[in-house]
Every structure is written in structure tokens, then in C-alpha cells.
Simulated assay, not measured.
Amino acid sequence: MARIHLFEFEDLPWFPSFLRNYGTDFLQFLANKTKMYEPVIPLLQKGLQNSCTAQIVDLASGGSGGLLWLNQELKKTYPLLKILLTDYFPNTDAFDYTKKQAENIDYLAEPVDARDVPEKLKGLRTQFLSLHHFTPSDAQRILQNAVDAQQPIAIFEAQERSFRSILAMFFSPITVLLTTPMIRPFKLGRILYTYLIPIVPLFVWWDGMVSCLRTYSVKEMQHLVNQLNKKDSFAWDIGKMKSGPGVILYLLGTKK
């Protein structure tokens, strides 16, 4: 199945930020509740250890993804761990909620472009469920920026271009309807635009389906790396692993 870069509503500048935030809140809740990223803990530990750092700079954080649960697990090995949340469209309400749950997590309220990360932000760069939002040229810019800054980078996608992933996303509106009352922080607008005016389930359905079609395969991520300048200054680990009934595609790059 060829990669198709259709649009996602949450990428559109005109899309209302509160609706975008309801979508990323849903993804954050699901990732933490299901411990979706449990299999990637060894990779994160490897990235931190190989880079001699105890800081994670999360790019394109959305609603903070599964980092709240991952943080608890990583702190068992790295008690001094610090996590900084960033995004081009910062969901500051979700970031603030996450920060209140874990004192070692902080965030930037101003936009941060994953393709051009400020030099002052040092640490293991991570992206959860976000690389597919970028075109191949922009995805390559993300990786090149990490290599140029000599900063490690770890990328994880919790879907792939397959019939199974697309089928799972097809039924995502049902999951939205079932989980919305449990999502925090509670917002009346989330209830309104989920049940009375069901925009959230519909745009999550569309964006989820398109996410699968946009996702880079292991071979395509390897191709992106092969095009980088000074790629050999980094060690690259690219592959796929099981996560419950689904899969996680991953890329880890650390300075040699």
C-alpha cells in the first residue's frame, strides 16, 4: 500500500484550537490508559543512556501522549529525569494538567517547530504518533536538525499502513464516545461536541484513517535516514514491534 499524504483536520491552521485539543486529549488518555508505549521503554532507556542525558524534549506533543505513564516507569531507572513538552500548536490546558500530575514534567507555551528546534533545548528528542503529519521533505528536516544539533532522537508511531490498522481506526468513534466522560481535565465543551454535535468523533475518525495512510514504513524511515548529511555520525535503530493487538514503528538515532 503506497503512502498517501491526505490532510488531517488537526494540521489545518484554521481548524478551531479547542476542537484540536479535544482530539489530542483523547489520544493522550488512550495512550496512558492502555499503556500503549510500554514496549518502547527499553529504546527510551537506550537513547538516554547512550546520550548521557536525563532530559527528554518531546516534540509535537499534542496532549502529551503517553508520557505521563512512561514518566513513572522511566523514573525507576532515571530518578532525575526531566521531560519538556512542546508543540507547534501547544495544548496548554493538557500540558498544565500533565505538569500537575508529575513535578518533573514541564512545557513551553510558545510554539516549537520540530523541523527547527531551538538550540537551547537539549536532550533526547521524542515524537509519539506525530511523524506521519510531516511530508517526506519535512520529516527529513526533523532528522537532519537533530543530527546537525548532535541531539539524539526517538520516534514512535502506533499504527501502520495496513488493513488491520485502518480497520481499528474505522471504529475509533465508538472509543471516543465511550471514553470522553473519563478524559481530564473535564470540559463541558468536550461533552457538547462529542454527543450533541458529534464533531470530535467524526474528525478523530477521519484523522485516524488518514494517519494510517500517512505513516512511514520501516523501509521509508530508513530511506529518510539514508538521505541525511553526516548520517554516519549517528547510530540508527529502525524497526517494528508488537504492542498488544497492534504494532509500534520506531526510529532511534544517537550520536556515535
Rank of each mutant, 00 (worst) to 15 (best):
P42A: 09
P42R: 09
P42K: 08
L43K: 05
L43E: 06
L44P: 00
Q45R: 09
Q45F: 00
Q45T: 06
K46A: 07
K46S: 09
K46P: 01
K46D: 09
K46M: 08
G47W: 08
L48G: 01
L48K: 02
L48P: 01
Q49I: 02
Q49F: 05
N50W: 01
S51N: 02
S51C: 06
C52D: 10
C52Y: 11
C52G: 11
T53R: 09
T53Q: 10
A54M: 04
Q55F: 02
Q55K: 14
Q55P: 03
Q55I: 04
I56F: 03
I56D: 05
I56G: 07
I56N: 10
D58S: 08
D58Y: 05
D58E: 12
L59I: 12
L59D: 02
L59E: 04
A60P: 02
A60F: 02
A60K: 03
A60I: 05
A60Q: 01
A60E: 04
S61G: 14
S61Q: 03
S61V: 07
G62C: 12
G62Q: 05
S64L: 09
S64A: 15
S64W: 05
S64I: 09
G65F: 06
G65K: 04
G65E: 07
G65L: 07
G66H: 11
G66L: 03
L67F: 15
L67R: 08
L67N: 04
L68H: 03
L68G: 10
L68A: 14
L68M: 10
N71W: 08
N71A: 09
N71Q: 06
N71M: 00
Q72F: 07
Q72R: 15
Q72T: 09
Q72Y: 09
E73L: 14
E73R: 15
E73H: 12
L74Y: 10
L74R: 11
K75Y: 06
K75H: 12
K75R: 15
K75L: 00
K75M: 01
K76R: 13
T77S: 15
T77D: 13
Y78V: 00
Y78L: 00
Y78P: 00
Y78K: 04
P79I: 01
P79E: 07
L81S: 05
L81M: 11
L81A: 02
K82R: 15
K82D: 14
K82C: 06
I83M: 13
I83R: 11
L84E: 14
L84Y: 14
L85F: 15
L85D: 07
T86E: 11
T86L: 08
T86D: 10
T86V: 13
D87G: 13
D87F: 10
D87L: 12
Y88E: 12
